[in-house]
Design a protein around this nucleic acid. Sequence first.
DNA 1: TGGCGCATCACCCTCCGGGGTGATATCATC
DNA 2: GATGATATCACCCCGGAGGGTGATGCGCCA
Lengths: 207, 207
Amino acid sequence: MATVRVLVVEDDPLIALDIASCLEDVGYEVCALAHTALDARKALSLNKPDIVLLDINLHDSTDGIQLGEEINARYGIPFVYLTSYAGQATLQRAKQTHPMGYIVKPFDVKGLYSTLEIALSNHARQQAIRQAFGDFETLNTRLPERLTPRELELLKGIYEGRDNQQLAETHHLSLNTIKTHVKNIFAKLDVANRPQAIARVRALLSR
Amino acid sequence: MATVRVLVVEDDPLIALDIASCLEDVGYEVCALAHTALDARKALSLNKPDIVLLDINLHDSTDGIQLGEEINARYGIPFVYLTSYAGQATLQRAKQTHPMGYIVKPFDVKGLYSTLEIALSNHARQQAIRQAFGDFETLNTRLPERLTPRELELLKGIYEGRDNQQLAETHHLSLNTIKTHVKNIFAKLDVANRPQAIARVRALLSR
DNA sequence: TGGCGCATCACCCTCCGGGGTGATATCATC
DNA sequence: GATGATATCACCCCGGAGGGTGATGCGCCA
């Protein structure tokens, strides 16, 4: 795996450097330091970081939490707040933006590292689940009767909304063959039709 | 909202009590203290905690990470590791279990509190997304042509795999009425059949 | 060598899904 | 009081989906 590229958003340059050196000590690459919201936006679109460390108090017109919202809306990048504790109200606002973690200053290197690792791991997992599953195979393990490789491929097509005709074309198979496979798939999933099969897949995939 | 009920799994009784008092200071209810894996399992099934604080090193045949896996598999409860740092290998194993956070001892109260809050919030969100969407309405905002309330309800049924007959029964409507609604829904979603409609909903929901 | 799982294809039949068209009642809004 | 959106229901039509049955070829393994 390539090195993890971190964007650090922190208005105090000294602290920013401190954080950056900690990150590099544990093997991360700090792709940019941003001291203002503007810097942060530039860095986000230019550097495409893997994860963002976000100070909340920026002495700026937009604060870290607003930045968090933007990151949610425009980029799909996970982020972690790293900030001095600012009480209930701030925390409540922060929660709304679904950060992958919240570290309170003064931070220690180990906590920083473990939080980032967990954040990256969980984010990767969520991506995998929602996007289109590198792991249709995992699904197989949770079934009483396992699906064959061919059936798995076709089930993926079904899940994405293709009809039999389309499946036949994209897989270079006869329509009859598709029908047979689909029948077998339904039997193994214990469902009667496509929508039910899709619902089943969704249930099995989400844990 | 009712108070949040926390299960603390920590083999050292003194530390456990320390953690518990910290938690109560910030307004949580500690529903149980478990010093062994066995205690933890009992507490899980009896007390139904909202979240679990999990020490990894338990001086037991099963360690905290195995417990984490079990919590994933059997209960849908979020958990946070609270442990002394034990290096890369442990962290790698821990990541596999998808904890909602990872706190390194010695912990401080603020960090504990904020991490738990974030964990609970994110877990609630994930539940909402995967289970049945409090926000089928959000979906509506991303559509060129908005769906009426009735159509939204029926779309939900379609998404869950019900056929027209079932929809008619559960909504106390004529089959013909269902058909009409479904037709209109498909037109607004710009799809031709149920599986495609489901795929569309999925795409819109996962932003 | 025979059996088993898998993949491939065929034919038939039934029924549900979805399109087209049109009707009526309610309600808010202008 | 007219107009438009919504909700309700009806009938017709047809094509695809799904069930049942059966067949062939291939590779693996006992």
